[in-house]
Amino acid sequence: MIDSITVNNISVSYDDNEVVKDVSFSFGPGSLIGVLGPNGAGKSSLLQAMLGLIPRDHGNVRLGSHSIDEMRKQIAYVPQRSNIDWNFPIIVKDTVLLGTYPKTGLFRRPKKEDKEWSMECLRQVGMEEFAKRQIGELSGGQQQRVFLARALAQKADYFFLDEPFVGIDVSSEEVIIDILRQLKNSGKIVFVVHHDLSKVRSYFDELVLINKELIDAGPVNKVFQRDNMAKAYQRELMLEGLGVSM
């Protein structure tokens, strides 16, 4: 059984400028959580601070009774596409194979099973025919699917995806959201940083809405409300103008 995740009073600042203020929330197993907020609301910072990738001013994250550091191998992270060097000399199937590294451990090499398993993950995202391509030769959506396959290859319990739907085609988006739902149904906890408001209801069951501070966290129906959204997006939000129905 996967332990629930609890975030306690996380704060992050860059040079005295607080970008995440005292955020707390908790989610149980089998959750697909959208992390939502306007540009500069600290969504990515929150995600990275949860994983200890950037220093926190204070606060902590518990996975059941464990700290993040004790559970690192159970954490799969999909970075923003802009953070990857797409000219790196690596082909698709080797990128997915990286997902098996955490559990392979030091001084060992991936075995035949690991290679077969990563091909299976590649198949799940529908990218097996591109196995031998260099990753820069793929479209944005295909690249994102490969990175999701890598996360699947990790057999992790906790998934963190940073803006996976930015700049990708519709069919890739469908493949990805489908897999994220399957992960949720098998009891995993999945966090997705997201900023397109139009699909929030159809994609997520739970939301974390932030604008530096936590506005609200919980089931979509409770969080995705006009006054919450107004608070988060303040004056820049003109929902009617954007044609978004709530």
Binding site: L51, R72, Y77, I84, I90, T95, T104
Partner: peptide, 21 residues
């Protein structure tokens, strides 16, 4: 040779490398 795996993953995607410890 001994740390090739770690050198590869940290050169390619340092965030993932740090995330898994």
């Amino acid at each position: 040779i001994m740390f090739f795996k770690e050198l590869l993953v940290s050169s390619f995607d340092e965030t993932m490398a740090a995330a898994y410890g």
